[in-house]
């Protein structure tokens, strides 16, 4: 699971959960792999992301580096910054671990890089 995907997932699929966002991450195995950098895509996606969620996710994995805690201005022309965001969004991958619902504490396992968001019948 890349942090791009973590940024979009919520546990509001659980009965009684309103927001279910952001999900906590408990990582057992994290892999870094190289993915081609696309300047235009990264600068287009940044305003749509939940920046706090991205920063906190990277930080909890110990990979925030010198990523700023709040989004900087004029990032479109700052390639150095865009490359950092690219790295955090697409190159860090949680292979093994758990996602945790912030409201119920329900855990969603991540196995072979795939988060399992399936619920039991009595949770829907």
């Amino acid at each position: 699971m890349k942090l791009l995907t973590h940024n979009m997932l919520s546990s509001r699929c659980i009965k009684g959960v309103d927001v279910g966002y952001p999900l906590g991450i408990q990582a057992k195995d994290v892999k870094i792999s190289e993915v081609g950098f696309n300047n235009e895509f990264v600068s287009r996606i940044i305003p749509k992301l939940d920046w706090n969620t991205l920063y906190n996710a990277a930080d909890s994995l110990g990979h925030a580096g010198d990523l700023p805690q709040t989004l900087i201005e004029d990032f479109e022309n700052n390639e150095e910054f865009l490359r950092k965001v690219h790295h955090v969004l697409l190159e860090i991958e949680v292979i093994d671990g758990e996602l945790v619902c912030p409201e119920t504490g329900r855990k969603f396992p991540i196995t072979s890089g795939i988060p399992n968001m399936l619920l039991n019948e009595d949770e829907v």
């Binding site: 979009m8 939940d50 399936l118």
Partner: peptide, 20 residues
């Protein structure tokens, strides 16, 4: 195709945050 990934979920349930 390293830039692809998968989520195990019921597509029709709300696993995507509404802000996405």
């Amino acid at each position: 195709p390293d830039d692809v990934e998968a989520v195990l979920c019921d597509v029709t349930s709300s696993v995507i945050s509404s802000r996405w």
